[in-house]
Write a protein that binds this DNA or RNA. Structure first.
Length: 587
RNA sequence: GCCCUCGUAGCUCAACUGGAUAGAGCAACGGACUUCUAAUCCGUAGGUUGGGGGUUCAAGUCCUCCCGAGGGCGCCA
């Protein structure tokens, strides 16, 4: 239980004694910290139905609540707000309980579910670029949040490796180098080394995509090759494997640099054996129909306010498409992984696609009604001009270059501010890497996930104010104190009632973790945790200024302050962990 | 054309889903380093939440109409 739920039940009991539902007793952190620590707005909500002035009801609640030993002050303000402040000794009691708790007061789920988080979505033939960063970072944080909540989380990047883009690449390469063995039906042995590098693919793919838009016969040829690949053409398959290996190795490096891990490394191609049987089932059912030569499923529902395009299972050329892969993947995740909830962390622009897939999955029984399917859409990352982020030359920024940029900026900051000068060079490099990545991740996660946002490299390289490094710095300061305290033989002790405001406010703030984490999970929105981590760091920094721990004369108070600092560190590290940010030992 | 987002301080973003005086950071100005790490802290200034109307005790949040921006609308992912 958290302090907030405890207060809610105290106030709820008071409402119940007055004959109202106890749910009106819900308490939230005060919006006016100078007036109170918590507030309850229930009196105003209940008043309308009770046909009584809200202030009267609030005063009756306050009269009951005031006598509770944990409540220091309870009073009515404005139209009927109930303001609450807890006693310092009650707060200290909570501090001792929560700081000693494994999950800092957050109750781990008693009914763990299997949650599949589908994020990142890199494509074969394309190095990851800035457009992938949001999906990767947000998805990773959501996976960490659900893990923290006690669920069984399966992370899957869901590589885009079985669709039309493969046919385009094969067609372009065959056009360019028809002498390669992959295109000779007689050949059964293929070279061990890829004929194309990642850089080659990066050039070939956009050219081929552009050509297909203008040259219908080239596009048709690419479609035929897609179908041939999907149907098991040996040479194409060998070439495909090599292209996939080439791009996947670079993608794994990017993920490693970001500290992002997956449990599975599946792609569309991993459900390829399910595609034809599944499509055949649709073909034999009433759900599908042939339209313009393609096999489709209509998805309109009675209360739609617009026309929704049908889901295409099989193209007129006989090939499988995006939606087919996703449907088969739902089937695999339900049947093999036992998924209870699948989260798709994908650009908001694909909302219609997921509406199609989810509706068809339900209609066909691929996803039973108790399996959750959710599209976690996010906004586009734009450059300072408000348009999708590009380099000065107009090209797409590679993710690896972006990471290098922020790490270099962090290194430059160390040099220019003469920080960590006496540390060994490898450690300085490690610090720069952690700081740069923290800046990148925090700068993304602190934004509301569903809105577009502006990516400004200067902002990500400033490392001051509300940034990832600010949070790391606060944590590092605590580590430094704890190290020095240990050197002096000091130990943490029982947390005593707060004596100064900065200390009291820090203790109150640290009690908010359970509700904030729950909100982030419920809304699938890490920005609440990001925002909260900043508040915790700020509160700690104020505490740091106000309470000098190592020079404290009273040993009991010193041990108490040390315990508060350690609690703040655990809280900060936990929050940063949820955001995928790690803290150096010193910086 | 139809539909979906969004519009908040000079800039970049929040706002616990309807609560009090709309909060942070950057940029600007002023203050605090013989320091437990100043990548810090304190203060000042900055707002008719795009505009009008409505619902409500209470609206940035809900409804409606304008204005503006972005996005999606059948064989790409």
């Amino acid at each position: 239980m958290s302090l907030q739920t405890r207060l809610s039940s105290i106030v709820g009991d008071a409402f119940a004694r007055l004959g109202f539902s106890e749910r009106y007793g819900d308490v939230v952190p005060s919006q006016r910290p100078e007036l109170a620590q918590y507030q309850c707005n229930g009196a105003m909500a209940v008043a309308a139905g009770a046909e009584r002035p809200p202030r009267d009801i609030a005063m009756e609640v306050v009269a009951i609540v005031s006598s509770h030993p944990d409540i220091d002050r309870a009073d009515v303000a404005g139209p009927g707000f109930i303001n609450l402040t807890v006693t310092d000794s009650a707060l200290a009691g909570w501090a001792n309980r929560v700081s000693g708790d494994q999950h800092l007061g957050y109750p781990t789920s008693e009914e763990p579910e299997t949650v599949v988080v589908d994020y990142a979505g890199p494509n074969v033939a394309k190095a990851m670029h800035v457009g992938h960063i949001r999906a990767t970072i947000i998805g990773d944080s959501l996976a960490r949040l659900f893990t923290f909540a006690g669920h069984r989380v399966i992370r899957d990047p869901h590589f885009g490796d079985w669709g039309f883009q493969m046919g385009l690449l094969i067609a372009a390469i065959e056009d360019e180098q028809p002498e390669l063995p992959y295109f000779d039906e007689q050949v059964v042995e293929f070279p061990a080394v890829s004929p194309v590098s990642l850089d080659d693919l990066q050039t070939i793919y956009p050219e081929a995509a552009g050509r297909a838009r203008e040259d219908a016969s080239f596009a048709d040829s690419a479609r035929e090759k897609t179908v041939a690949l999907q149907q098991g053409h040996r040479g194409y398959h060998a070439l495909w494997e090599q292209m996939k290996a080439v791009s996947e190795s670079s993608q794994r490096e990017d993920f490693a640099a970001l500290g992002v891990n997956f449990d599975l490394w599946y792609g569309e191609s991993d459900v390829r054996d399910r595609l034809a049987p599944m499509v055949d089932r649709f073909r034999d059912s009433e759900l599908s129909e042939v339209s313009d030569g393609a096999l489709i499923v209509r998805i309109e529902e009675a209360d739609d306010n617009r026309e929704l395009p049908p889901l295409i299972l099989e193209s007129s050329a006989g090939g499988f498409l995006y939606s087919t892969f996703d449907l088969a993947t739902v089937e695999m995740r339900v049947q093999e992984l036992g998924a209870d909830l699948i989260l798709y962390v994908v650009d908001r622009r694909q909302a219609d696609h997921f509406t199609q897939v989810f509706r068809v999955a339900r209609k066909a029984g691929i996803a039973p009604g108790d399996v959750g399917l959710e599209h976690i859409g996010f906004g586009t990352m734009n450059g300072p001009d408000g348009k999708p982020f590009k380099t000065r030359e107009g090209g797409v920024v590679r993710l690896s270059d972006l990471i290098q940029m922020v790490v270099d900026a962090a290194k430059a900051r160390l040099d220019e501010a003469h920080l960590a000068e006496e540390y060994p060079e490898p450690e300085r490099f490690e610090i720069a890497a952690k700081v740069g990545v923290a800046a990148l991740k925090y700068g993304d996660l602190v934004n509301n996930r569903s809105s577009d946002y502006v990516f400004d490299i200067d902002r990500f390289s400033s490392f001051e104010g509300k940034t990832g490094p600010y949070l790391q710095y606060a944590a590092v300061r605590i580590k430094s104190i704890l190290r020095k305290a240990a050197d002096q033989g000091l130990e943490t002790g029982e947390i005593l009632p707060a004596q100064v405001m900065a200390e009291r406010q820090l203790m109150i703030e640290l009690n908010h973790l359970p509700e904030i984490v729950q909100r982030s999970i419920d809304l699938r929105a890490p920005n609440h945790v990001a925002e909260y981590a900043h508040t915790v760091a700020l509160m700690f920094n104020r505490f740091y200024d106000a309470c000098h721990i190592l020079s404290e004369a009273d040993p009991a108070r010193q041990a108490s302050l040390l315990a508060v600092a350690e609690w703040a560190l655990r809280t900060l590290e936990t929050l940063l962990e949820l955001l995928g940010i790690s803290v150096p030992e010193r910086m």
